[in-house]
Nucleic acid binder design. Structure first.
Lengths: 266, 266
DNA sequence: CCAATCGTTTGATAATATCGCACTAAGTTT
DNA sequence: AAACTTAGTGCGATATTATCAAACGATTGG
């Protein structure tokens, strides 16, 4: 008998759903499929329960089982969900043309990202056609503290959300320029707030330079950030202030569209 | 009191999961977010039940609620799942280089797809760099009966699976060349089985020509199909028999790799 | 200003997911 | 080859859990 007392005001989450999602997470990370036993062990689920959950997920198409090995992995139905998110997000739909324009204008890769906890998630991009370019995947995550996009997004958070988040961060020194401490980051974020844009000068990766600016919704809340990435080698050929201005203008254009466009009903 | 008797041997699916997934499906289709009320109405769920499910999904990050409108839509966590599927599927990983090679060799778009019920799902692609080209989305679905990929995949099914599937199909006449009846389709599939490849001669879309061949696993079971798509206008410039041979060879290469590569353990 | 919806909360209830146990098949060790 | 292990799967009893009806305050609209 397990008596679970809700910590006051906490939302009640359906147990089987919570467990099912934890299995999906597990499968998303476990590259080439996981065994039922390891799932039940690692997630601390009764084997029968795990089986019940997994076979339900399989029947629903979210999980598939390899006929030969018996291993479980995510099903292709997940692909469709991912696509649906991408193609339906107002943000992405509205922003894409602007991103494309900025990309073709300067021939460099453009990204849009949102904040998920202390990481950023890329939600849209427009890729440079040059052979040396930044390669990223939509849906992929990156630590926020060492990217221009992340700094813009973090800078927009109110202190009461930002400070607890800083606690959870680990500051991995990817390069010589990587921010190393919460204090240094806070200091940079202050600068970002006054400037209205952020740079990443090879903080995440040697040779990668990024310029980022915030995208705000109708209420002025920062819902995303866009960035322009260029190899440091090409940075000298560009007029950085001009690029910065272009990025900010594009961000403003997208923001204006988010604020102005009337909402359609279904 | 609802007494539900399982139809003997049918797998029992966890109800709350089934309902949660139906909500996810609903949200995936409902473009710009759905209202709680319409979800509960259309899916025949008690409003409280729907709310419980949805708020759980929200707490788990699969669904998000627009602050302003209150509408629910799929969360960005779904993007990450989609990405995980794509990057972990052996099939896709193994096939991508072959698809890329075929694409650059002829400068036309190449696809790989699998069967989901009576539809095909694109799981990988290599895009032509020409301005006039086929534009598709990974994860998107298409009816199987009117595409080269679909015909290859259907042709590989055993009769006992194929025949019930034919019952459920609706034959929409997209073009003059679209197959119109189960009989005509069966006849074509017979041909595909003996030939080992399939064509789509503007059956889905005017001006679109496709060549497809099956990809088989270690046991010879057809697990996917690949295709090369070209605008009918460019078809005359190509040597169709040579293209067909190239597609079949690429499919064979991928199949060989699937059969030969030893399976890794975690 | 009343009527109608909206999303949300509550608490009682019974239906449901869970768990322990048992079974089979395949792989190891003795 | 028998005994032992470990895999995935099936079943039924049980109480935990998801569900439902009713009602709430907040908006919206006629």
């Amino acid at each position: 008998m397990l008596i679970y007392v809700e910590p006051l005001g906490g939302k009640r989450v359906i147990q089987s759903l919570q467990r099912a999602v934890s299995i999906l997470d597990y499968l998303a990370e476990a590259g080439r499929g996981a065994r039922l036993t390891s799932i039940s062990r690692d997630l601390d689920l009764n084997k029968s329960t795990a089986f019940s959950l997994i076979s339900s997920l399989e029947a629903l198409g979210l999980v598939r089982q390899d006929q030969d090995t018996g291993r479980y992995s995510l099903g292709i139905r997940m692909l469709q969900y991912g696509l649906a998110v991408q193609s339906h997000m107002d943000l992405v739909l509205d922003a894409q043309p602007h991103l494309d324009r900025l990309c073709t204008q300067y021939g460099e890769t453009v990204h849009m990202a949102v904040l998920s906890g202390s990481e950023i998630t890329y939600v849209a991009k427009a890729e440079s056609s040059k052979s040396i370019r930044m390669v990223t995947q939509i849906g992929a995550n990156m630590p926020a503290y060492c990217s221009a996009l992340g700094k813009v997004l973090l800078a927009a958070l109110p202190r009461e959300q930002l400070l607890p988040l800083l606690e959870t961060m680990e500051f991995t020194p990817y390069t010589r320029a990587t921010v190393q401490s919460p204090q240094a980051l806070l200091c940079q974020l202050e600068q970002v707030r006054t400037d209205g844009y952020a740079y990443d000068r090879e903080e995440r990766e040697e040779g990668l330079f990024c310029i980022s600016a915030p995208v705000t919704d109708a209420h002025g809340a920062c819902v995303a950030a866009i960035s322009l990435s260029l190899p440091a080698g090409r940075a000298a050929q560009h007029d950085i202030p001009a690029l910065t201005k272009a990025v900010r203008n594009t961000a403003r254009d997208i923001s204006a569209q988010l604020g102005g466009s009337p909402r359609r009903d279904s």
